[in-house]
Design a protein around this nucleic acid. Sequence first.
DNA 1: CGGATAACATACTACGCAGTATGTCGTAGG
DNA 2: CCTACGACATACTGCGTAGTATGTTATCCG
Lengths: 221, 221
Amino acid sequence: MANEGIHREWASRIRGHEESGNLVESVVEILDCAALCFTEMGFQGTSIDDVARRLGATKGRIYHYFRSKTDLFFEVHREGMTRLMDAVTAAIDAGGTGREKLQRMVEAHALTMMQNVAYEAVVVQGVHLHRLSATTPEQRVILNELMDVRHQFEQLFVQVFREGQADGSVRETADVSLAVKGILGAVNWMAIWYRPRPDERPETQEAMAHEVAELQIRGVT
Amino acid sequence: MANEGIHREWASRIRGHEESGNLVESVVEILDCAALCFTEMGFQGTSIDDVARRLGATKGRIYHYFRSKTDLFFEVHREGMTRLMDAVTAAIDAGGTGREKLQRMVEAHALTMMQNVAYEAVVVQGVHLHRLSATTPEQRVILNELMDVRHQFEQLFVQVFREGQADGSVRETADVSLAVKGILGAVNWMAIWYRPRPDERPETQEAMAHEVAELQIRGVT
DNA sequence: CGGATAACATACTACGCAGTATGTCGTAGG
DNA sequence: CCTACGACATACTGCGTAGTATGTTATCCG
């Protein structure tokens, strides 16, 4: 179960619940609803009561597990970022030329975006994390951690891009960072316009991810 | 002066001021500050007092010209959209093959984004306009109008894209709409990461815009 | 079988902020 | 010269909402 790893991660961070139980289900439910609310109405536009209402519960349940609205947002963001990271690193580990790896990375990125629109839309919002003015010193640590992961994520693409240039599979370009930002922009933008059709087939998503990746990669080869 | 046209536009919409004066300067100042605030802290994160403080004024001045915070946001959004539209349509009018036009459009789009980061960042935020729950019937009319312009903007790219496919200058692709969304995503994303260096030369911006456009166009040819 | 604790719900508070109502000052027009 | 109005500033209100404090119930452990 994918939840196992996630759970271990959480247990240490949430209200001092060090050991596991089936509290995980409850927390996951909260995170799912929060992700949906944040995606639909934005961070500031979402009230804790909104999330609670969607859960069919009250604030009490949420504040039982999360110190603040900001912490809740952080956790959703972290989860979304983790899923992205896992998908992309897996794509790297599959090996091949720089170009091949890069294309698989972009495709994995795109597919993950589509399969987790709610969480990833929150991640995209999170680019503006620094906007959060009401941050305790404690939160600021987490914030820096999150922004660091963001940066690492982008650097993964930069590294493989350079790798591809070194082995000749990727074209030389004026500014690698700019090229990568273009590619990531095209994919990240999906979180904004893409919403799954009620009856959407997995193959459709895969086809779209493949198409997006191919177009972007073609631009740099 | 570019302000002339803008002004005529406004006069009819703002607090019934039908005729001009130097009220325009004051309104432009407000819009500029509002754009900055919205860009930095988001719509919901920005208070009218924030904008006023940045102006070195008070709420009174803002509410003298704008009915509500939402209307203020709308006006900034409209201005940003207008600038984009103007730049892109000009690129179309320059003629050439579909591919040539498309590349100029993307380049113009990118350059406009960089030259008007504040306004365009608001436009990008505006993708989520539907989030605004507190909308009067009056505002909903404007909102539909804005979203309509958005759609038209995207359709411009789709049309020229097809034009390029017809004349053979653009490659056949599975889904034109998807391809366009990719390109627009790469450019729109600039509003999120790009911030002008204090001493940034215009040529630097032009070079970046050119680079981004070339990479994206190369993907579809 | 009692009491401790987890997992919530209910009730309440404090404050930020959008919007309004009213005041003030300068100026253009009669 | 006065008065009407535009261009703001000041002062105030009401509501939404984050966060807290305090129940309530079930369950597990000794």
